[in-house]
Design a protein around this nucleic acid. Sequence first.
DNA 1: GTTCGTGCAAACGGTTTGCAACAAT
DNA 2: ATTGTTGCAAACCGTTTGCACGAAC
Lengths: 132, 132
Amino acid sequence: MSDIIQVLRRHGIQATPQRIAVAEYVLAVRTHPSADEVWEQVRRRCPTLSRATVYNTLNLFVDKGLLKTQVLKEGTVVFDPRVDAHHHFIDVDTGKIYDVPWQALKVSGAKALRGFDVREYQVILRGRRVGK
Amino acid sequence: MSDIIQVLRRHGIQATPQRIAVAEYVLAVRTHPSADEVWEQVRRRCPTLSRATVYNTLNLFVDKGLLKTQVLKEGTVVFDPRVDAHHHFIDVDTGKIYDVPWQALKVSGAKALRGFDVREYQVILRGRRVGK
DNA sequence: GTTCGTGCAAACGGTTTGCAACAAT
DNA sequence: ATTGTTGCAAACCGTTTGCACGAAC
């Protein structure tokens, strides 16, 4: 609980009840929620929470490096608590997004691209979840 | 000119002046325009063209396999006349999107991912254009 | 008492939709 | 006559913003 406060402070974010509630949710979740999904969920614990505060808070967290935004869905941005490099798999039926560990894939050729100074990259895979 | 009409027909699309104008633009362009950008450009030749028709037309083209949508920018979908597999490089300064040929990169490991039936994938690279 | 955070509502930008006029077949 | 296409305006949805209230230093 006060772990969260430490994390916020460490990122230069003043802790408030709303920010703590948002952080508790968004830092632990393994889905890749949109801002509205975060609002829907956190509101259940913190019913006074406004949409604007959620958007402001999430943007603040991104600015401070606590979260990253990912452009993986049409029409909305999703937030990802994993700020280190990794890939994403998108289920074409459900739209669900899954993390794929960085070491699971190897990309070669990026350094050899002429005219492009590649700073970062990720693989986006689409298909169907199978098995469990 | 009437090449375009043939292409449309071959994809099961009834040719109209508006659709021809949109197709002429969007099939030849090497940027990755949003619907509004298509409207801006095509309108100069065809000033009666409405926004709604552009959106309807582009969506029709996607349904019929003439174009693909790509989710590469926040807040908007872009249209890509190259419907075969390739990668994308995004300039972090300008936001410009560049095609990266499929053979320029090699991704290994996708088949070995357990629990994921990968149907397609692409690499999204970010960085800076250098040289020209 | 000034700074900062919150909540509301309005504004905004990209996209879709309902509908009436209008071709085309 | 029917079917399909266009254009306009309104609706929609995710997001941002202006502003007044309130809490914290």
